[in-house]
């Protein structure tokens, strides 16, 4: 990997340049919570000033720029009994600034399903190919457990990755496009001093991790504790509201709906992201539901993340961002649930 540094002033110029030519997405705040903390989300930015480089964590992950919550897979022109299918993949070059290591790692996990296994997904592919990611390091929040998930650092899957080392950013470069762009803004070779500062910052970041989740035997635990009461305990609180999956950077499952216009001349096949916590996730015709209870559905959320995905791709489907834990009104977080599982095991 190549490394360079860029002054913050030049970085500003670079973002302004990118803004002129492309759509740029970045963290912005809109509301505040009761504690006075800003609530961030990834949105289109119109000027450098709107970009909040000191943001903490976006409430929802930026996955929707790769897997939109809703998308038309195909459209149809209908006429009497015949029809014509039309498929266009959205090609929309854009830049996303400020994605965290965990979010980029989440994309790498999605790549496993969407690109590197059977039936690669063209809609995802088109978006992934046309997006330049500029990542950004930060000090972990109290509840981040990406370290335990081995997703606190990232080596590929982005164009540039920035670490704030004072008056400049230390930049890891991972694509040709990104390299060309960076070099137009006086990026300089890494000096010994830069390197020292980078090391210090990285150490500092490392020392800030507070939350640990023990996942060593989690896949086995998922089977051993399959009938455990702890699922009922948490499931009883669960609102089956799907918030966890919507904000999660790695949840990807979906439903399909088809509809026509009022004159039955046009139809669409629409995909919309779903959540395995929702009541009818596994319901089939005539009212049979393979997962009828909230606690069973909750268990399967964890089963997919920490057992199923591990079996298929040798890694969990979780990057430890704790967005689900934050979004869950019922206070259900991976840390709490997994700690509980481990405790019952020890008893």
């Amino acid at each position: 990997m190549l490394f360079k540094t860029i002054t913050k002033e030049n970085f500003k110029k670079m973002v302004e340049g990118l803004l002129e030519e492309n759509e740029v997405i970045g963290p912005r705040s809109r509301d505040q919570d009761l504690g006075g903390n800003k609530i961030y989300r990834f949105l289109k930015i119109n000027s450098f000033e709107e970009l909040e480089m000191d943001y903490t964590r976006s409430y929802s992950s930026p996955k929707n720029y790769f897997l939109p919550f809703e998308e038309d897979l195909a459209t149809y022109r209908l006429n009497d009994k015949d029809w014509e299918q039309e498929i266009r993949y959205t090609i929309h070059p854009r830049v996303i600034i400020g994605m965290r290591a965990c979010d980029i790692n989440a994309l790498l996990k999605l790549d496993q399903v969407m690109l590197k296994s059977v039936y690669p997904n063209p809609y995802y592919f088109a978006r992934r190919r046309n997006t330049l990611i500029i990542g950004l390091d930060h000090e972990p929040l109290e509840d981040c457990f990406c370290r335990s998930m081995n997703t606190d650092t990232v080596f590929h899957g982005f164009g540039l990755f920035l670490t704030d080392i004072g008056d400049r950013y230390f930049v890891a470069i991972n694509s040709d496009t990104a390299y060309i762009i960076l070099n137009q803004f006086d990026a300089r070779e890494v000096t010994e001093e830069d390197q020292e500062r980078y090391k210090t910052v990285k150490k500092q970041i490392e020392s800030k991790f507070k939350t640990q989740v023990d996942i060593t035997i989690l896949p086995e635990l998922m089977d051993l504790e399959f009938e455990s009461e702890i699922w009922k305990k948490w499931g009883h609180k669960c609102l089956s509201c799907g918030s966890c999956a919507m904000v999660c950077p790695t949840c990807y499952c979906y439903g399909i709906e088809e509809d026509t216009n009022l004159t039955f001349t046009k139809a669409t096949k629409r995909r919309f992201l779903y959540s395995c916590n929702l009541l009818d996730f596994a319901a089939v015709a005539r009212g049979h539901n393979f997962r009828p209870d909230a606690h069973i559905r909750l268990k399967y959320r964890y089963y997919h993340k920490f057992r199923g995905f591990v079996e298929a791709f040798s890694q969990s489907l979780c990057v430890g961002c704790n967005r689900c834990g934050k979004a869950c009104l019922a206070g259900i977080s991976p840390k709490a649930v997994i700690d509980d599982l481990i405790k019952t095991e020890k008893k």
Partner: peptide
């Protein structure tokens, strides 16, 4: 069959309960 939260999250709203 599911509740409003699903759509609320999909629109990237801030949860008003947090506010």
């Amino acid at each position: 069959k599911y509740p409003v939260c699903v759509e609320c999250k999909q629109r990237l709203n801030s949860c008003v309960l947090d506010m």
